[in-house]
């Protein structure tokens, strides 16, 4: 047994990081979204107000009368998070207060239901960081396909069977739509590269005006992988090219995480049951698999993700560990 010099509750109060979401939340084992939200709130610090859309994050952290949140937090509806955040921001401004307003939503609340409110918030120039935790379906209500679900993925409303191989439609290119608002800062991140994620949160908070972060957050339940593999799956997403890590300012690409040696998309897909049907012995399955491979290659070409040589901040170097642990700093 490990001898702990002080009681755990005291040790918890002396942790070298800010805790925005306490433990005791009811997210599933190995939840990628709670990991992402934990990392975002840690990086954002205590001087924030959070508006949260309906979704897994809201449901699992607030089993009334409990709350896991240790920062001011409000939930109203699925569709109006950006509007609520806009109102809070305007009220704080009127009171000459400088707390940063964060809007948290899932992909359903961002790509589909809350999209109009989000577009309005950006258009009005509110100083809000909007974070979309993208687990690529409506997980809270039982894995229904969303505008973010990638083509070929099976959900309860896009099942794989004789007629269809999962979802027929492409994943909505939300980042281009956001960028088209002449957006000061928009970026993608993932739970597999926490240092990169924290860097982007800090950058987005520095920027005055609306900013947007899309955080790829694997869902063990909905994607069909073991909870222990959440980070591994997220990392394969990046290394295959399907999940490009990029930064856009005023619509222009200003930063990418290069991929040292692209992994086959099949490595990423094989790790998840929602793509299992793509490995069936049929011409259709093989074609759909090649489709996803082509989408990954298209991302690599479109954003220039090929690394000319090994770099410290490419897909292999960015998560290198060091004795003493300063790589996530």
């Amino acid at each position: 047994m490990t001898a702990v010099p002080i009681p755990l509750s005291d040790l918890r109060r002396r942790q070298p990081r800010f805790t925005g979401i306490s433990p005791g939340h009811r997210a599933c084992q190995g939840c990628g979204e709670l990991l992402a939200a934990r990392l975002v709130t840690e990086a954002a610090g205590p001087d924030v107000v959070v508006a949260n859309a309906t979704g897994c994050l809201e449901v699992t952290t607030t089993n009334w009368p409990d709350s896991a949140w240790r920062v001011p937090w409000i939930h109203s509806l699925f569709e109006n998070t950006a509007a609520v955040a806009s109102g809070i921001e305007a009220a704080l401004k009127a009171q000459s207060r400088s707390s940063k307003v964060l809007a948290f939503a899932g992909d359903g609340g961002t790509f589909d239901i809350g999209f109009q409110a989000l577009s309005g918030m950006i258009e009005r120039g509110h100083n809000v960081l909007y974070v979309c935790y993208d687990n690529e379906a409506y997980m809270n209500t039982g894995v229904q396909r969303s505008g973010s679900t990638p083509v070929g993925a099976a959900t309860t409303t896009s099942p794989a069977g004789k007629e269809r191989l999962g979802k027929r439609h492409l994943k909505k290119d939300i980042l281009s739509i956001i960028a088209a608002h002449y957006m000061p800062y928009a970026a993608t991140a993932t739970v597999a590269y926490p240092a990169d994620l924290r860097h982007k949160v800090r950058r987005a908070i520095e920027v005055e005006g609306p900013t947007f972060l899309l955080v790829h957050s694997p869902c063990p339940q909905g994607w069909g992988h073991d909870g222990s593999r959440t980070v591994e799956v997220a990392r394969l997403g990046v290394q295959s090219g399907l999940v490009p890590l990029i930064e856009l300012e005023r619509g222009a690409v200003t930063g990418v995480m290069p991929i040292r040696e692209p992994r086959p998309v099949a490595d990423y897909l094989k790790a998840q049951a929602r793509f299992r049907h793509l490995f069936a012995d049929s011409a259709e399955a093989a074609r759909e698999l090649q489709h996803l491979q082509a989408l990954a290659e298209h991302n690599i070409e479109r954003y220039g993700l090929s690394a000319p040589g090994p770099e410290a901040h490419d897909s292999e170097g960015a998560d290198t560990v060091r004795r003493g642990g300063n790589q996530w700093a």
């Binding site: 755990l8 942790q15 433990p23 939340h25 926490p194 003493g324 642990g325 790589q327």
Partner: peptide, 22 residues
């Protein structure tokens, strides 16, 4: 090797860090 991976990646903050070696 004290890399902080467990401390950083636990979704439940169930890994705590001690200032001294245990």
């Amino acid at each position: 090797l004290a890399c902080d991976n467990c401390f950083t990646l636990c979704p439940d903050q169930a890994v705590l860090k001690s200032p001294e070696n245990l």
